[in-house]
Amino acid sequence: MSGIPMEHGLMVASALFAIGLAGLMVRRNLMFVLMSLEIMLNAAGLAFIVASTAWAEPHGQVMYLMVITLAAAEASVGLALVLQIYRHFRSLDVDAVSQLRG
């Protein structure tokens, strides 16, 4: 067991999550939006690892494997869509893409 208390680890994960969320809301470039999503997912992964280490249990690590799988799948579908969007709009700006109103 490491000497770092679980609370500290969870706080780091929370900070990471908040950074990702802020990026998601502030950034206008689609690539950065996708990267912010990755940061949020990794924050969740870190929290699972921290909790799993604190409980000395493998369940959280299994969940972490599922989280990175999800992040990879999310990134591949996201990048495929971004590629099509760039072909279509010649821009990666969120505001340029957003046309539906009402």
Binding site: A44, A47, H59, Q99
Partner: peptide
């Protein structure tokens, strides 16, 4: 373009939702 936009919007917001859900699960697990 509308279909692309719909797909992308759903992807981003649904992924954000998943991230919230996962982080919540991790805290509950902790």
């Amino acid at each position: 373009s509308h279909s692309l936009e719909a797909g992308l919007k759903y992807l981003i917001l649904s992924a954000a939702g998943s991230a919230f859900l996962l982080f919540g699960m991790a805290l509950l697990y902790a």
